[in-house]
């Protein structure tokens, strides 16, 4: 019995210059109601969405960086980051926010579901997803 599909949200845009990152986040938040297996993939400029230390107080923009930290509560189980994209931008896993996850029924906990993966793994994860939403 497998009605559960693997949904992947692929994020390839920087967070503030365009509306893509916020739109993707909103769809993930709304889509949580469908109880699917949800993963997020961050590649290319999309890796900038997870960089910590963002402060929009002087830019008159909403800082939605804190919202990523609640995604574990919205059924997001995996957040993958393409290693090559990070490296090309002079970044490492230490520059990224951490997102905790907890199964409310079994109380299983994961401290951080953000995981840096190599390109071969990115390909594999995309291929095995039933649906890929690209932003």
């Amino acid at each position: 019995m497998s009605d559960i599909k693997k949904f992947m949200y692929l994020n390839r845009r920087a967070p503030y210059g365009t509306i893509y990152a916020w739109e993707s986040l909103e769809v993930v938040l709304i889509g949580a109601a469908f109880d699917q297996e949800v993963s997020l993939m961050f590649a290319d400029d999309g890796v900038y969405q997870l960089v910590k230390g963002c402060d929009t107080s002087e830019s008159d923009m909403k800082n939605f960086m804190p919202t990523y930290r609640t995604l574990g509560d919205y059924g997001v189980r995996y957040m993958y980051v393409d290693q090559a994209s990070l490296e090309a931008r002079g970044l490492t896993a230490d520059d990224l926010i951490e997102v905790a996850w907890e199964d409310w029924e079994t109380e299983e906990e994961v401290d951080n579901i953000v995981e840096v993966v190599d390109s071969a793994k990115v390909t594999e994860l995309m291929a095995e997803s039933d649906v890929v939403f690209s932003f």
């Binding site: 938040l29 949580a32 109601a33 909403k62 800082n63 939605f64 804190p66 919202t67 930290r69 609640t70 509560d73 919205y74």
Partner: peptide, 9 residues
């Protein structure tokens, strides 16, 4: 978190 939580959350 800068959002209003969904009812189930």
């Amino acid at each position: 978190y800068q959002i209003a939580p969904a009812i189930r959350v």
